[in-house]
Design a protein around this nucleic acid. Structure first.
Lengths: 225, 225
DNA sequence: CAAGTTATCAATTGTTCTATTGAATAGCAA
DNA sequence: TTGCTATTCAATAGAACAATTGATAACTTG
């Protein structure tokens, strides 16, 4: 049957992209790229693997169409290929967290005791009411590259010394790179230890940005072609 | 470093689900399940592979948390585990179609010459105006299991004989299982050959249903936990 | 031009995944 | 019980993949 072979080819082609999401190392690279463009070396350092290895995985991701690359002087800067890819990665991460006990266990193991969290919508409302102070606890460069409107930057490392900068009469909401990033968890614990009322944003900066742009042009649902 | 090992475990856990999407056969099964629950045998027949093979892939999908199974008399009925999984599959399919030339080529090869299509929103408006007649060209059972409000069922096989049932003064929109399903394409060609003004819905039933339920409760974006 | 980065290539080894086959199990019907 | 059917298990061989290492290419800077 001719049709069968053609259908097979079609699914094989889709699986090319699926395979990109089948390796833990590549997922970690994607997660890093969800924060913004990065060079090979930055990615290698952040994921604690050889740059040869990093480069190979990045090439696999490139072949699968999920990242773009761009020469920049002596280095090469990789980035997610588009918002649809970001949405895809977030959907995978979300579904796996919702359906796989392994993910929940591993997340708890890595992040420690769960801390209280609030969702995007609730934060948006409370920000409008001026009800909370929002703190971005990522490294400064990442804040500079983009952050939630109305947030102030206090990198986790400096939090202990700068805790006095924060008002005592309002709830403090900390956020970082995403639900599986340890910074906000750590920040909330530190703040609570210092007697402040603190909680973390459920998501991080990439999720916020995606929801924001999706909100601004609700026409284009990010689905099938 | 302790943290490194924990982070690795976390990404390994997420990759468990990623691997589910790395095999063409499994993707085909997912695509079939996107239409609705099916038994092993039905799936084996539809995907033209041995039921032993089908069963093994289904078990892999089950282990990855993307499908549920349920004993039903002498057979076992599998289904997608939830709307988030459906959304994930559609996102992958969409992104791969948008970014991989291979997919586009394979799709064109399988579906033949592209036929004119309209999007969900436009169809919704034209349906409201009573401007078009909407035809579901899937097999009758699938129509019975669920269809777009206002559609009439004319399985592709019967279309040629029943073409007179369709009004001549309005555009005819055909839809089927999705953008990569050949039925609607074929139907439009047949209708045009008969002198009618016909086009196809860009997506199919699963996409419509998902958009519908997402529309009804826009609060719950289907993302990360 | 020479030295020093940064990224990629190539070859290797060990592991994991896939499809196939034939046998085994579980439920149903006579 | 004895078939009968639908599904799953188990074992295999072959293919694809991952991490490692050392070498290479491209580009920058002195």
């Amino acid at each position: 049957m001719q049709d069968r072979r053609r259908k097979d080819t079609l699914f094989e082609a889709i699986a090319l992209m699926g395979k990109a999401f089948a390796s833990p190392r590549r997922l970690e690279l994607l997660d890093l790229l969800a924060q913004g463009p990065r060079t090979v070396e930055e990615l290698a350092r952040a994921s604690e693997q050889s740059s040869a290895n990093t480069s190979q995985h990045l090439q696999a991701l490139h072949a699968a169409g999920v990242v773009t690359r761009e020469r920049e002087g002596t280095s090469v800067r990789y980035a997610l290929a588009g918002e649809d890819v970001l949405a895809l990665w977030l959907a995978l991460r979300g579904a796996s967290a919702a359906r796989l006990a392994e993910v929940e266990r591993a997340a708890r193991d890595y992040l420690g005791e769960p801390v209280e969290a609030i969702g995007r919508e609730e934060l948006r409302e409370r920000l409008k009411r001026g009800d909370v102070v929002l703190v971005d606890v990522r490294p400064q460069e990442e804040f500079a590259a983009g952050h939630i409107d109305g947030a102030r930057s206090i990198p986790l490392e400096e939090l202990e010394q700068r805790i006095a900068e924060l008002p005592e009469d309002r709830d403090i909401v900390a956020y970082c790179r995403g639900p599986f990033c340890a910074y906000a968890h750590e920040a909330v614990r530190e703040l609570q230890e210092a007697g402040r009322s603190a909680l973390r944003l459920e998501d991080g900066w990439p999720e916020w940005r995606l929801a924001d742009t999706a909100h601004k042009r609700p026409r284009s649902r990010r689905q099938a072609a």
